[in-house]
């Protein structure tokens, strides 16, 4: 189950601002969904390995050879805010 505080905490991790109304609605819906998901608890998964990839392949590697980079103007072409050849964001305070 999931309470409002948890939803708020998780929304913060996901960097999503929720309005109070959204928060209420989401908490209820996520509760329903998680209740449904809890069905998985009835499966015995002892000694079952996890599957992260649909197809079992491995050791996919490329050679260390140069490819052309994007021209700077193209790299920045979608930028909401830029300065010369850099992207700009509100000041980061460390």
């Amino acid at each position: 189950m999931i309470d409002k505080k948890t939803v708020e905490y998780v929304a913060n991790l996901a960097r999503i601002e929720l309005k109070e109304k959204e928060l209420d609605k989401l908490s209820g819906q996520l509760g329903d969904i998680l209740g449904f998901i809890d069905k998985l608890k009835e499966v015995n998964v002892d000694s079952v390995p996890p599957t992260s990839h649909a197809i079992s392949i491995g050791n996919v590697l490329r050679d260390d050879s140069l490819k052309e980079s994007l021209p700077v103007n193209k790299a920045l072409s979608n930028s909401p805010l830029k300065n010369g050849s850099s992207f700009i964001v509100p000041k980061v305070i460390e």
């Binding site: 140069l66 490819k67 980079s69 994007l70 790299a75 010369g84 050849s85």
Partner: peptide, 20 residues
């Protein structure tokens, strides 16, 4: 080149000139 793409790792170039 970089770990996951073919861009150069050279230091000190124009910002964002070695990106893809």
């Amino acid at each position: 080149t970089k770990a996951f793409c073919g861009c150069s790792t050279e230091f000190g170039k124009e910002p964002n000139s070695q990106t893809c």
